[in-house]
């Protein structure tokens, strides 16, 4: 993953805030926010994750003219794998998100043009009664603004499970 041009816009922050159900006007109204401590609109704490929109290669977004693995006539656009009872094919979808950590050097605001570099971190395995062998992998993403200043350091951990975890 590489993000070169994550242009942060107030409308995107507004839509993101709506989607998490947060009515705080500091995410919506410049006239409200300018008189407060932040001096203007800022993004909610987890907004950096929406950088996925600006990652050309992000595999969890349908691409124009390319096959997509979500359902149409069939359950998936991809050929079906032979699957054992209770076995997860969720790995086809990249596994599950196990952890996410953000360190804020400052908060994102409209007008920022962020770029991000991603480094692979550690990988490890764990046994779980409920889900079989769990394989964890870590990534560290540094978001910098157009002046090169570090804005957010993010650490994510993904997990693939041997068995489906149902409710």
């Amino acid at each position: 993953m590489a993000i070169e041009d994550f242009a942060v816009e107030a409308s995107h922050i507004m839509m993101f805030a709506r989607s998490i159900g947060d009515p705080n006007q500091v995410y919506y109204s410049d006239s409200y926010a300018k008189d407060g401590e932040t001096g203007g609109i800022i993004a909610p704490p987890t907004f950096a994750q929406a950088s996925a929109q600006f990652d050309e290669e992000y595999f969890l977004r349908p691409k124009i003219g390319k096959p997509w693995f979500g359902s149409g006539k069939e359950g998936t656009g991809k050929p079906k794998k032979e699957k054992k009872e209770g076995e997860s094919s969720g790995s086809a979808a990249g596994g599950l998100h196990a952890e996410q950590h953000f360190e804020y050097h400052r908060h994102i605001k409209p007008g920022d043009v962020l770029s991000a570099t991603v480094k692979q971190g550690e990988t490890w395995e764990k046994q779980s009664k409920r889900a079989g062998t769990l394989k964890f992998s870590e990534t560290v993403t540094e978001y910098r603004d157009q002046t090169g200043e570090l804005v957010i350091t993010a650490r994510g951990v993904a997990v693939t499970t041997e068995k489906v975890i149902g409710s």
Binding site: R18, Q49, A50, A52, R61, G70, S89, A92
Partner: peptide, 24 residues
Amino acid sequence: YAGASGDYNPVHTDEKFVTEVAGY
């Protein structure tokens, strides 16, 4: 949330995919 964040993984929004293919 999928639309705002850009994470369109069908396990979050596609009932047919998630039940028939992913097995949730």
